[in-house]
Write a protein that binds this DNA or RNA. Structure first.
Lengths: 181, 181
DNA sequence: CCACACTGCTTGCAATTGCAAACACACTGG
DNA sequence: CCAGTGTGTTTGCAATTGCAAGCAGTGTGG
């Protein structure tokens, strides 16, 4: 386990707890662990087992996997397939339901591209506001050429890569110390 | 962690090892754990941490997740969880849209569990149209029995919440023994 | 036969985990 | 003011984890 990650599991837990607006003791009780131990975990003094992480996750109403990832026990699963692929492969929904989900998902995607959603709307609007005023100002051909290379600036998706955590480097750390049976 | 799972992680490891045709010492060396400890794990005398499981998985050239599943640390991921995972990981939709999709998907799942999907309804109607004319023609009871066994075809897949471990009892179990010190 | 190599297991121990009891501090109501 | 309640932290300890040294058994070659 990478040492920095160990530190962050405690920070992560404290962060989740404060976001949930519950006290350390309340979470400890909800999770079924002792409050001193939870305190130590949050401060990075102890490294909890997967079981304890499981309990804490339950107390926080978050997935145990999220904590495992933070603790470096598992890799964060990148979606091997995207939403559409997953929906298509799903065996627990009918074809009709599948199509409905796909349609909804794609309409959401369109919403996001047209720039009317909640969270992404701000970013998209900002991107638009910049190129438009420049077009009004630049009535000359050379000026027209100047803004052209800037168009691809509006094309990309700024949030696409924001959520790729780097957790996989876990194992090689301990190996050399524990060898020789 | 469910106790039966603890027992089987050792069996599972031994099984994988024997299938790989390597000795306990070889695996221990490859995994970077002590061979006595690996022996104890295989015989269920010790419960290895997730880290050790990770190392053993590496030595066995299998995924750590497979061992985590056997050890009861995580759920066995069914294909349908890919949809939820994909939705959660998708960066092209907002949190709000994400929740909407999840809600819809899960309501579809519930529909399917109650056994009233559209696709099945069509099948049922087809099945009806066929036996009805036959009733007029045949009028015999065995035709009525023919479509009935097709219902179990909509077999369910329970998995999601089996993750709730009996772990909190473990703490309560240890607590009275630990105190009085 | 014996020495050697390999196998899996036993045993004692240091380090770590998780807990309970207690502590220190902050806040509130009488 | 003080007592009560809640917060998070400190401390000592029992249980557990993981290891190294060693043991017992098996197979092979000289």
């Amino acid at each position: 386990m990478a040492l920095p990650k160990v530190g962050s599991i405690g920070e992560y837990i404290r962060e989740q707890r404060t976001q949930a607006k519950i006290s350390l003791r309340q979470l400890a009780a909800a999770a079924g662990v002792s409050n001193p131990y939870l305190s130590q975990i949050e401060r990075g003094l102890r490294k909890p087992s997967a079981e304890i992480l499981n309990q804490i996750a339950k107390g926080l109403h978050i997935s145990a996997q999220a904590l495992y990832v933070q603790a470096g026990l598992i890799e964060d699963r990148e979606p091997d397939s995207d939403v559409l692929t997953a929906i298509r492969a799903d065996t627990l929904i009918t074809e009709r339901q599948r199509q409905v989900l796909i349609d909804i998902y794609e309409s959401f995607r369109k919403e996001n591209r047209s720039g009317t959603p909640d969270a992404d709307a701000q970013t998209t609007e900002n991107a638009r506001s910049e190129p438009e005023p420049r077009r009004h100002d630049a009535g000359s051909p050379p000026d027209d050429e100047a803004p052209l290379p800037e168009e691809p600036f509006a094309a990309p998706k700024p949030f696409t890569e924001a959520q790729a955590p780097s957790t996989p480097k876990v194992n090689g750390h301990v190996t050399p110390e524990t060898k020789e049976g």
